[in-house]
Amino acid sequence: MNAHNHNHNDSIIDLVQKHLGRDLGAKAKGELKHHIEECPDCKVYVDSVEETVKLYKSIDSATDIPSGVSERLFKVLHLKKDS
């Protein structure tokens, strides 16, 4: 989907952005679903952006606090970790 070859009116583009931002009501969701079923460009656009966000979240979830960082935190706060 590209602005050069995709002549949608602003309302459809706005719907797509709201959908991606989880800001869409039930009625508008239906309207967008109907549009996407008939528009492969919009389907690729929505799927690819959703998939990118999902992928980022899946690689992001593994971040742990290193033990040295945790130890220094408790030291600065004058607390004992297992007290």
């Binding site: 989907m1 590209n2 602005a3 050069h4 995709h6 690729v44 799927d47 998939e51 690689i59």
Partner: peptide, 29 residues
């Protein structure tokens, strides 16, 4: 404003289903 929809991607296959190398995707993200 004219390029705010990004690159013109015509085909997108879920990379997880496609078994794309996870480490490459992780690194590029």
């Amino acid at each position: 404003e004219s390029s705010y929809l990004g690159k013109d991607i015509r085909k997108w296959v879920n990379p997880v289903e496609k078994d794309q190398d996870q480490s490459i995707m992780k690194s590029c993200l």
